[in-house]
Design a protein around this nucleic acid. Structure first.
Lengths: 346, 346
DNA sequence: CTGAAAGCGCTTACAG
DNA sequence: CTGAAAGCGCTTACAG
């Protein structure tokens, strides 16, 4: 393959001059610049990434660790991945995607071997095992997702607390007094998926303040289980006039379930989901929802990592924890509650 | 950072011996092996990937080019990405993910700079602009998707021809004589999405053979358009007793549409989709379908690329084009047609 | 403004 | 079985 020596020879300059002419890190005469450019063009020269990485200790690659759990909603993850990839490219970085189950070993491997200049972690758990590794790494890291300990990394996440409040307040304002919150499977919580309980706890607190009876429960993330569960819940709680769904699969199943029961939103039930606008458009979801903000969060994480990589002064700036305020996208699926049914218990 | 010189010093051997002890490419005494291993452990040594790549001309990274079009179904792409990523890791490779719109420049960049040892292209178009670049590249490449010209690359795809036949035959066997095929948006075809017309043409041919009247049409990939279009189609063609859907968004919208019309599958309409089992499970889709085989295709592509990378003799083996036979997953959404309605025309 | 040389951290013939 | 040395292709002080 053609290397910088070939370019230098053809341009009639030294290798260092060719290098400087290309990088612009040292002034070069217009004549030299033209000859080097011509040689590059003629020979089809592209710098060898490995050699450059070795010489500069920079790879211009960002490591992206995404974990896919059987019981979580994979397509949602895709939006974060795309946001990270696209933002990285805008900033001149490529993305090394790691989807291994045990992100721990993979993370150590790509940081220790210096394959990447920085790291973005997706789907971060409360007590994420990857965090100690990331803190030890020489490269800066940013998370999408809020762990228990944010030391040594930049953290970005939706404010699930505000999301929980927002959903309850919205229904309370409309006059609902019996509301059901359907969350991700309990197993997600056990694994440390803090966003589930963060939203739920905030919703519970808001409900208490607003005098709303809030039932909380979990649902599966696959059919046919989730459809059956929704039927069971609506059977068991006829008094419920408002439904909050923090579970994409449940949201996807809900239209069928409601149709089967002859129910319409908001006539018979006010519904608010928590999912992305993209998801709603693709999957025909007619419910108002709190937007995931995947694009924004992914972009923020990358920008902060790149800043710490490139701006020497930024290396030692204090780490940030930014919780993005949720936005409710109104699709008209909420309204005043229907005629009140006598509460079945509670 | 600790390098192999540090390891060698601590183990009391030369750098070459340390290297050989680690790689096993030359016999080393058990004593040396133990001392080197201990030093590696003690110092936490990991080889520098850039240096190794420079020395060996191998990066152990595979480039994965995925294109996301506004009018295609992004979650389907995720399954291919995961299949490629997981298979690559099994074989000891990392994945550089490129999601740029113009894959052409990106492909040239990562191949010319030797960032990758091989390439997998997803979502390949009939006249894919990335193919000339890939053929020129020094690295081997595999495609998921069938282009017009398969020269110089290994090609893997679902046999959309057999899929089209299979769908029509299945309904014809049940006695259906009026069938509607809803495909991806026409724009996908214009862009060179050959799978659309490959399935459609085969379906048309099979229908002619079987004496089935097959209407073919396109639908959008987003709401609310696609729902309205389905209603319009079912309004316009009451004679249709079988529906074939080669469009994930349409499939996702169909349960609502059918419920709204008081229709049930297979009672009023026999339905076969073309999507993955994973998609069906996640999105509550009750229709029999021809499986996408994303896992299989992604894995095949990676295995073939890696083989050409690693097995010198494989470099010059003839290129392959493998079309995987489709598999119909029966979810009970097809049956004998209901009482025949007089055909409205055609 | 330009060149000769060292160095990044590996691997691998070449010698013994 | 082991070591000294060259080389992979860059970048960047050091000299002029």
């Amino acid at each position: 393959m053609v290397n910088i020596g070939d370019v230098a020879r053809m341009a009639g300059v030294s290798r260092s001059t060719a290098s400087y002419a290309l990088s612009g890190k040292r002034p070069t005469s217009p004549d030299v610049q033209a000859r080097v450019a011509a040689a590059v063009q003629e020979l089809g020269y592209t710098p060898n990434a490995g050699a450059r990485a070795l010489a500069t200790a920079q790879t211009r690659v960002i490591g992206l660790l995404a974990q896919f759990y059987e019981d979580e909603f994979a397509p949602a993850m895709l939006q974060y991945i795309l946001a990270v990839s696209n933002t990285a490219r805008e900033l001149g970085y490529d993305v090394l995607l790691v989807t291994e189950e045990s992100g721990v070993q993979a993370l150590r491997r790509i940081t220790d071997s210096r394959m990447v200049d920085g790291i973005v972690l997706l789907n971060v758990a409360e007590d994420d095992q990857r965090l100690p590794v990331l803190r030890d790494a020489a490269q800066p890291g940013a998370l999408v997702g809020l762990p228990g300990d944010c030391t040594g990394v930049d953290v970005f996440d939706l404010s699930f607390e505000e999301a929980g409040r927002l959903m309850v307040d919205h229904l309370a304002d409309l006059g609902h007094r019996d509301v059901l919150l359907v969350s991700q499977p309990e197993h997600v919580i056990e694994r440390g998926g803090a966003y589930v309980w963060r939203l739920q706890n905030a919703a519970v607190a808001a409900a208490a303040e607003r005098g709303v009876r809030l039932l909380t429960t979990f649902a599966s993330t696959h059919q046919p289980e989730v459809g059956a569960e929704l039927h069971g819940l609506l059977d068991a709680h006829p008094e419920v006039t408002g439904l909050l769904v923090h579970n994409e699969a449940a949201v996807a199943a809900l239209p069928s379930v409601m149709h089967a029961r002859g129910m319409e939103a908001p006539r018979d039930l006010s519904v608010i989901g928590r999912y992305s606008d993209e998801f709603a458009r693709t999957f025909s979801l007619p419910y108002s929802s709190v937007e995931s903000a995947a694009d924004l969060l992914g972009a923020m994480a990358v920008r902060h990592v790149v800043r710490r990589i490139e701006v020497a002064a930024a290396r030692d700036e204090p780490y940030v924890v930014e919780l993005v305020a949720p936005r409710l996208v109104d699709r008209g699926s909420t309204g005043v509650p229907p005629h009140v049914v006598p509460a079945a218990g509670a």
